[in-house]
Amino acid sequence: TTVHVNGVTYHFPNPEEAKKFVDRVVKEAGLTVEVKGNQWDVE
């Protein structure tokens, strides 16, 4: 699973890890998340 955060790419072994990361980032920074298949874009 690939997560893009403001142009930076993070790779995770599974969607659960990616979701935990995204949830944390979104809570801390108040960002928006767009999910496209296995790819997350966070802005």
Rank of each mutant, 00 (worst) to 15 (best):
K27S: 08
F21D: 00
E34Q: 08
D23I: 05
E17Y: 02
A29I: 10
R24K: 11
T32F: 03
H4P: 01
V5Q: 02
A29S: 11
Q39D: 12
G37C: 14
T2W: 14
N38I: 04
Y10V: 02
P15R: 06
Y10P: 00
D23Q: 07
P13W: 07
F12N: 00
V3C: 13
K27I: 08
P13R: 10
H11M: 06
N6R: 05
V33E: 11
V5R: 02
E16S: 06
T2H: 09
V25Q: 04
K19E: 05
V3Q: 00
L31R: 04
E16Y: 11
K36M: 15
Q39S: 11
N6Y: 09
Q39G: 12
V8W: 07
P15M: 13
K36G: 14
V22M: 11
A29H: 12
H11K: 05
D23E: 12
N6T: 02
E28A: 08
V26R: 12
G30A: 07
L31A: 11
G7T: 01
H4S: 13
D23M: 07
E16D: 09
T32Y: 04
T2K: 05
H4T: 14
V35N: 10
G7K: 02
D23S: 04
N14T: 12
H11F: 13
K19D: 03
Y10T: 01
E16Q: 07
P13N: 12
V5S: 02
D41C: 15
G7Q: 02
E17C: 10
K19S: 05
A18I: 01
F21W: 05
F12E: 00
E28C: 15
V33T: 09
V3R: 01
T32R: 08
L31V: 12
A29T: 13
D23Y: 04
K27M: 12
N38Q: 08
Y10N: 00
H4E: 08
K20V: 07
H4D: 05
A18L: 04
E43V: 15
E43D: 11
K20W: 05
V25P: 01
E34S: 13
P15G: 06
K27C: 13
F12G: 00
G30I: 06
T32S: 10
A29K: 06
E17P: 00
V25E: 03
A18N: 00
L31Y: 12
H4A: 08
V33L: 09
F12W: 01
R24N: 06
V33N: 08
T1L: 11
T1G: 02
D41H: 15
P15N: 10
Q39L: 11
V3M: 02
V8S: 04
F21P: 00
K36R: 10
V35I: 14
P13Y: 05
K36T: 15
T2M: 08
E43Y: 14
E16H: 06
V8F: 10
E17K: 02
F21N: 00
A18Q: 01
E43P: 08
N14P: 00
N6W: 12
K36H: 15
V22C: 12
T1Q: 04
V3F: 02
G30H: 07
E17Q: 05
E43A: 11
T9S: 08
F21I: 00
K27G: 09
A29P: 07
V3I: 07
V26S: 11
V33R: 03
V35K: 05
K19C: 13
A29C: 15
T2Y: 14
H4W: 14
P15I: 13
L31N: 08
H11Q: 04
E16K: 04
E16C: 11
N38R: 03
N6P: 01
N14A: 02
V35Q: 05
K19Q: 12
Q39W: 14
T9D: 04
T32M: 09
